[in-house]
Measured scan of single mutants.
Amino acid sequence: TYYTVKSGDTLNKIAAQYGVSVANLRSWNGISGDLIFVGQKLIVKKG
């Protein structure tokens, strides 16, 4: 599943929405910090 980042989104918010961990979101998307951008597509695997 792909999720497109919207204004106001955070990794924590997206992780909670999908029932996954922030660590997994980072791993699946090659993100090291907490910086995400509006319009960015993130890979999300269902929890």
Rank of each mutant, 00 (worst) to 15 (best):
T1D: 14
T1R: 08
T1V: 11
T1I: 13
Y2E: 12
Y2F: 12
Y2V: 09
Y2L: 11
Y2I: 13
Y2N: 07
Y2S: 10
Y2G: 06
Y2P: 06
Y3S: 02
Y3L: 04
Y3C: 03
Y3N: 01
Y3H: 10
Y3P: 01
Y3F: 04
Y3E: 02
Y3M: 06
Y3W: 04
T4H: 08
T4P: 03
T4G: 04
T4N: 07
T4C: 06
T4L: 06
V5G: 02
K6N: 13
K6T: 11
K6P: 01
K6V: 13
K6H: 08
K6G: 10
K6W: 03
K6Y: 04
S7D: 11
S7T: 11
S7R: 13
S7K: 11
S7W: 07
S7G: 13
S7L: 09
G8E: 08
G8S: 06
G8H: 07
G8L: 06
D9C: 01
D9P: 00
D9M: 03
D9Q: 02
D9K: 01
D9W: 01
D9S: 02
T10K: 05
T10H: 06
L11V: 08
L11T: 03
L11S: 01
L11G: 01
L11M: 07
L11I: 13
L11A: 02
N12S: 13
N12A: 10
N12G: 13
N12P: 15
N12W: 11
N12D: 13
K13A: 15
K13R: 15
K13D: 14
K13L: 13
K13W: 15
K13E: 12
K13S: 14
K13M: 13
K13G: 14
K13Y: 12
I14W: 01
I14P: 00
I14E: 00
I14F: 02
A15G: 10
A15L: 02
A15C: 05
A15F: 01
A16G: 10
A16V: 14
A16S: 12
A16I: 14
A16H: 11
A16T: 13
A16D: 14
A16W: 08
A16C: 05
Q17W: 09
Q17C: 05
Q17L: 09
Q17T: 15
Q17Y: 14
Y18F: 10
Y18E: 07
Y18Q: 09
Y18C: 05
Y18A: 08
Y18L: 09
Y18T: 13
Y18M: 11
Y18W: 14
G19C: 06
G19L: 13
G19R: 14
G19V: 06
G19Y: 08
G19D: 13
V20L: 08
V20R: 02
V20D: 03
V20G: 03
V20Y: 04
V20T: 10
S21Y: 05
S21N: 07
S21I: 06
S21Q: 06
S21K: 07
S21A: 08
S21H: 07
S21T: 14
V22I: 13
V22M: 09
V22Q: 07
V22L: 11
V22P: 07
A23S: 08
A23I: 10
A23N: 13
A23M: 09
A23H: 11
N24S: 13
N24F: 09
N24Y: 08
N24G: 08
N24C: 05
N24V: 11
N24T: 12
N24R: 09
L25V: 06
L25T: 01
L25R: 00
L25N: 00
L25D: 00
L25W: 00
R26G: 04
R26M: 15
R26Q: 12
R26N: 06
R26A: 11
R26F: 04
R26T: 10
R26H: 07
R26C: 06
S27M: 10
S27G: 13
S27K: 14
W28Q: 04
W28G: 02
W28D: 05
W28S: 03
W28Y: 05
W28M: 07
W28C: 03
W28A: 04
W28F: 05
W28R: 02
N29K: 00
N29E: 00
N29H: 01
N29Q: 01
N29R: 00
G30C: 04
G30S: 14
G30F: 09
G30P: 06
G30W: 06
G30L: 11
G30H: 10
G30Y: 08
G30V: 11
I31L: 10
I31M: 11
I31S: 03
I31A: 03
I31R: 02
S32N: 12
S32W: 10
S32F: 12
S32L: 14
S32Q: 10
S32P: 10
G33C: 04
G33P: 03
G33R: 07
G33H: 14
G33K: 08
G33Y: 09
D34P: 06
D34M: 08
D34W: 09
D34R: 06
D34N: 07
L35Q: 11
L35P: 07
L35K: 12
I36W: 03
I36P: 04
I36S: 03
I36E: 03
I36H: 02
I36L: 13
I36N: 02
F37M: 10
F37D: 15
F37G: 07
F37I: 14
F37N: 12
F37E: 08
F37H: 12
V38N: 07
V38R: 06
V38A: 11
V38D: 08
G39K: 04
G39C: 04
G39M: 04
G39R: 03
G39V: 01
G39Q: 04
Q40P: 01
Q40M: 09
Q40G: 03
Q40N: 04
Q40C: 04
Q40L: 09
Q40H: 05
Q40T: 07
K41N: 09
K41D: 08
K41P: 07
K41Y: 12
L42C: 02
L42W: 01
L42M: 11
L42F: 04
L42I: 12
L42A: 00
L42Y: 03
L42G: 00
L42D: 00
L42E: 00
L42V: 06
I43R: 08
I43C: 05
I43P: 00
I43V: 09
I43W: 11
I43G: 02
V44H: 02
V44A: 04
V44E: 00
V44N: 02
V44Q: 01
V44W: 03
V44C: 03
K45N: 12
K45A: 13
K45H: 14
K45I: 13
K45D: 10
K46T: 12
K46P: 14
K46Q: 15
K46V: 12
G47N: 15
G47K: 14
G47F: 10
G47S: 11
G47H: 13
G47A: 14
G47E: 15
G47T: 14
G47R: 07
